[in-house]
């Protein structure tokens, strides 16, 4: 079946931690007019929060001046796709980064569970990164009540 775009929303915000909650609120606003369960919405907000936090703390290493782009897309078959893009440091080894408990930031009390949480709560997680340039994380989930 061809997937048509039912609705989309793109936002670019400064790499500041207060925008983590803004991103979650945007996800809720984007999805609430549609048949999304409370659990699905919580799953999506958690996964999005992980990706946005990673962009800020790893992509930009908490330096100001960077920008994070979030693209929301809802397809006519009930699939939600959220893309989080930063133009920060990039990931050297994506496969390794996705392993549970792998972190390059123990100094800031990080546990290395962000990607595992994204994978648990979404149907599909894709990561594309160019070292020294950019990271893009694509999160996908199908809404179960969609008709």
């Amino acid at each position: 079946m061809r997937r048509n775009v039912k609705n989309s929303l793109s936002a670019v915000f400064s790499a500041q931690s207060e925008n983590e909650s803004l991103a979650r609120v945007m996800a809720a606003g984007f999805l609430l007019p549609h048949p999304v369960t409370a659990e699905e919405l919580a799953d999506i907000k958690t996964a999005l929060s992980e990706a946005v936090t990673n962009a800020l703390v790893h992509g930009y290493r908490e330096m100001e001046g960077g920008r994070v782009k979030v693209d929301f897309c809802l397809f006519s078959d009930g699939r939600v796709r959220i893309t989080v893009t930063d133009h920060g440091h990039g990931i050297e080894d994506v496969e390794r980064a996705r392993e549970p408990f792998f972190t390059t930031d123990r100094a800031h009390e990080r546990g290395g569970m962000g990607f595992s949480i994204m994978e648990t709560f979404m149907d599909r997680v894709r990561v594309k990164s160019v070292l020294g340039r950019s990271t893009r994380v694509v999160l996908e989930k199908r809404l179960s009540l969609w008709k």
């Binding site: 919580a42 936090t53 800031h108 009390e109 990080r110 546990g111 569970m113």
Partner: peptide, 13 residues
């Protein structure tokens, strides 16, 4: 009301 992986880092710390 909400937590993500940052919570675990905070608590374990």
């Amino acid at each position: 009301e909400f937590c993500d992986s940052s919570a675990l880092g905070l608590i374990l710390g």
